[in-house]
Design a protein around this nucleic acid. Structure first.
Ligand code: MN
Ligand code: MN
Ligand code: ZN
Ligand code: ZN
Lengths: 143, 143
DNA sequence: TCGTGTTATTGACACAGTCCAGAATTGGAA
DNA sequence: TTCCAATTCTGGACTGTGTCAATAACACGA
């Protein structure tokens, strides 16, 4: 019985009542290796790692991982959805208008800024998502 | 020469160096009559108003109006793009997770909240977009 | 090892939007 | 009023992202 790290992906899946499959492990690895990848990027990474995978398996896995809170999905305008394993820390993102690059941005003020809208129109709000838009260092140079 | 209101759409288009066409005027009217419509909604409204319009004309018009800052395009996840004529006032939106309804939300704090990210990674930021997610009054009732 | 329910594969399909290209129409400057 | 450039139309093909449905393979508890 080999000793496992606390956040061993195998245990992580089991703890959430999910079956352990090579596809799911590879998706999990891809997402944690490089944040903000698209489903397509992830599919490519998984395929190079385990040889073959169906697009549907990637999407299904991403969906179930998202539903169980193991990963997070962000969807900037003009971009396919992106995934990251940095969850439960309420961070935001800055997106380059030119090349689409995404970077993490910590909360601006206090622990939950922008979470208090002025008028909520009777909505019950459970999340405040902040997206910053601008130009990344590279695209500033390229004018 | 009939007297025109200050924000007469005809003048508005001319001021931005755009030709005045019935299609553009109808799109402009639709967008200002009801905010947060989709391109499809707008196409339908324009068609009932001026009889016929091509989808391309609608998309072209929305694009050129957006480029000139006469209207704004917002694109919540899991929704087609939506358009509004409330520009230059830095307001945000709350979206219903169930039915997709969109409502305006004024800035939470001061005039430009959330515009000061903790760490900007060298990005030059020109906009901070806040999207609130939750349930609208109707969908709360429908559980 | 077996059986069952879960997951993966496959291929078609949906949706929102874009692109195309020629012809027709229209706006507005002169 | 004339004329050119800008705009629209027709109408389909096409793209990227994602979903559905049927079948096959697999995971894992018994
Ligand atoms: Mn992130
Ligand atoms: Mn609005
Ligand atoms: Zn960039
Ligand atoms: Zn609703």
């Amino acid at each position: 019985m080999p000793k496992r790290h606390l956040t061993d992906p195998v245990d992580l899946l089991r703890e959430h009542g999910m079956q352990v499959t090579v596809q799911r492990l590879a998706v999990l690895r891809a997402v944690s290796q490089r944040p903000h990848l698209t489903a397509d990027d992830i599919e490519k990474m998984v395929r190079t790692e385990i040889g073959t995978v169906s697009r549907q398996a990637v999407y299904d896995t991403l969906a179930v991982l998202t539903a169980n809170g193991l990963i997070r999905r962000i969807q900037p305008a003009h971009s396919p959805a992106r995934f990251e394993d940095r969850v439960d820390d309420n961070h935001h993102h800055v997106v380059c208008r030119q090349c689409g690059r995404v970077a993490d941005v910590d909360c601006a003020v206090g622990s939950a800024p922008c979470l208090e809208p002025a008028h909520r129109h009777g909505f019950v709000i459970d999340e405040a998502e902040v997206m910053y838009w601008g130009l990344c260092p590279d695209c500033q140079i390229a004018r």
